[in-house]
Write a protein that binds this DNA or RNA. Sequence first.
RNA 1: GUGGCCGUAGCUCAGCUGGUCAGAGCGCCGGGUUGUGAUCCCGGAGGUCGCGGGUUCGAGCCCCGUCGGCCACCCCA
Length: 430
Amino acid sequence: MSDKTLAARAPTGTHDVLWPESTRWEALLGLFADHAERAGYGLAHTPIFEDVKVFRRGTGEGSDVVGKEMYEFEDKGGRPLALRPEGTAPLVRAWVQHRLPLPWKAWYATPAFRYERPQAGRYRQHHQVGVEALGTADADLDVEVIALADRFYRALGLATFGLRLNSMGDADCRPAYLDLLRDYLLARRDDLCPEHQERAAEHPLRVLDCKRDACLEATADVPTLADHLCEPCREHLARVLAGLDALGVAYEVDHRLVRGFDYYTRTTFEFSSDALGSAQNGIGGGGRYDGMVELLGGPPTPGIGFGLGIERILLACDAEGVFPVDPTPLDAFVVDTTGGAAARDLTAALRDAGLSADRAFDDRSMKAQFKSADRSGARWVLVVGPDEAASGTVSLRPLRDAGDQRTVPVAEVVGAVRAATRGAPAPDAP
RNA sequence: GUGGCCGUAGCUCAGCUGGUCAGAGCGCCGGGUUGUGAUCCCGGAGGUCGCGGGUUCGAGCCCCGUCGGCCACCCCA
């Protein structure tokens, strides 16, 4: 293996986001920030790595994400750390550390790291936007959070996605149900798929989520958690559903929906895109975690949140043909065949005036500079050749819009470009 | 972690059963005589055929390994 191929490649499962694709990311982030902040959520940045315990306790040792997919390492001081595999536990840790007034509502955008086999829509470093809200068990908060995600997807232009929702019960009713479920499964153990014959005892809920025929048949009439919820949980779920109905958020109650983290209580939900053909069609998910704050050393405090996968959302947008890349064009591109000093000064003057400008370097031919100008996507080309230099003028030539070339005195260039681009309609308004 | 497919210029790909097979299109660079792009014409640069090893008189074309990509499982965003 030569050094060349090793060094010049992003690590397995990671990817670069370069212009112009990066402009979509900026736009997506901006749109999410807008939705979150209009709902009272404030931006939070927390470290990209944490004490391993934050995830072992908070996210849950039993989850695959923590149990076998975490990027763990020790720093030079021997501290056991882990790259964040998900966004919730770090935010909860931050609240436990700072004890901000409740309810506390935060949003974030972050990379997440999981050591798994890459494939369509799945990376070792992927990115999420999300919200977390701590301090109230009010079902209306569940509704607010879910509606926030729903509205955000729609604002992107997505239309063919679905929301499945379930209740995981709470500390009062779930243990009893788990016993019941475990007994039921063990009685039919031989009928389950090979993998779940072993795992049924420790992860009974997972069996409900198994897509193999054996498990599906064996659990055809399995007792559902929905039928064994305690009264408070039942009422909570009913209020959530009523709230979603009131806000026009379409959903499907799926009592087999089981999410991968241990911490969920009561409401859990998952958004999936019908436009994505692959198995990785989940574009977002979340739920309540009324016990996590305590697990991380805080007082009993309920919480709820979600994480949405940026890469998958963008794949879904591509599949639906919405949310196109739309870079902002430059106002001007300077072509200078007199040595470059004029280009240097003109671009600086334009930028100082708040306009955007670029130029060609290396004193290339006029034709070559025009090709660069064309490729830059600028609205106007400002030409400085021997004639202009001699007369102290600059020629303005429209590149993207109709119109004739004209020549103005150097002193009027900035004003002319500003006038020509101000209020100009976006080239391809959607 | 398990299984399958794949890996040729910056990009998309041709290369028949191993013997001019190192190519095309796009892109890039230059030119088409006097300063003007996106069209057209001409020319050019660029690849140790992912990497390493093996079989053979001879290997992009066969075998093994390795790295990487894709797909499924698992799980998740």
